[in-house]
């Protein structure tokens, strides 16, 4: 007999070794997330996937599913807090969706849509962040980095390189690249690397492709992120997933 947990009152089957996120995704239950990606080691830092497991606050992407768990996911309290956490990410960096070339394909924007975020709520940090356009095919706009570390993990775990890392502490945390000069052009990153395509926001972009799909015809212009995420992340993970 299958082992099960309950999520919002529904029985969800799981296998030993699965996280709550993995069991939920396989069963067609969406848990909001940004730093989680099924192909990479879970990180548990964005805190968007916070659920309550038998009353205790846990990150669904790192917490192992186990018999007897009663999980709350899609509740007003949790979604209200997830919206506040999303708003924190928006005010921390400089996110101008209407003028960003990732608009419509951006997971940060799509999560904000999903959570019905209508304002920034918190005061802006107006952080001064640089751009790195030195590489001939790939650019970094640090204004949009949310420190999910997906590029760090993709470079190490998929590309067999070590192009990206996070440096600094606290609010001064920032993305760095593996080159003496600190410039992307001096790393061994190539546009075909998974790390160049994994960014959930518009922080890492492939040059000269920004408007090949017109605004209005992009992924989240027509679909909610729950539908897109479940379709992409519950299928067998052999094909490259490209959000760009």
């Amino acid at each position: 007999m299958n082992k099960t947990i309950t999520i919002d009152g529904n029985a969800i089957p799981f296998e030993d070794g699965q996280t709550i996120m993995e069991a939920a995704t396989a069963a067609g239950v969406y848990i909001p997330h940004l730093c989680h990606h099924p192909e990479y080691t879970p990180h548990g830092s964005c805190k968007l996937c916070t659920v309550r497991v038998n009353g205790r606050v846990c990150s669904a992407c790192t917490f192992p599913a186990a018999e007897g768990q009663d999980v709350l996911n899609n509740t007003k309290d949790l979604n209200d807090d997830r919206k506040l956490i999303t708003q924190m990410l928006f005010v921390e960096g400089n996110h101008f969706c209407p003028s960003c070339e990732k608009t419509g394909n951006c997971q940060l924007q799509a999560v904000a849509y999903y959570l019905n975020m209508l304002d920034d709520h918190f005061p802006h940090f107006y952080a001064h962040r640089e751009m790195d356009a030195s590489h001939h095919e790939v650019m970094i706009d640090h204004n949009r980095c949310i420190f999910c570390t997906l590029c760090v993990r993709a470079s190490q775990q998929k590309d067999g390189k070590d192009v990206f890392a996070i440096s600094g502490r606290g609010i001064n945390k920032h993305l760095i690249v593996n080159a003496q000069s600190g410039l992307l052009k001096d790393t061994d990153l190539e546009a075909s690397d998974q790390a160049a395509h994994i960014c959930p926001t518009g922080a890492i972009l492939i040059k000269r492709t920004g408007y090949t799909v017109p605004i209005g015809e992009r992924i989240y212009d027509h679909k909610q992120i729950d539908e897109v995420a479940l379709a992409e992340e519950s299928r067998p993970l052999s094909k490259e997933i490209d959000h760009g």
Partner: peptide, 18 residues
């Protein structure tokens, strides 16, 4: 605490500064 935050998670990294 804002100075001590390591910055790993969103609520503490952004929250303690806010």
């Amino acid at each position: 605490f804002a100075h001590e935050s390591c910055g790993f998670c969103t609520p503490c990294r952004v929250g303690t500064s806010l």
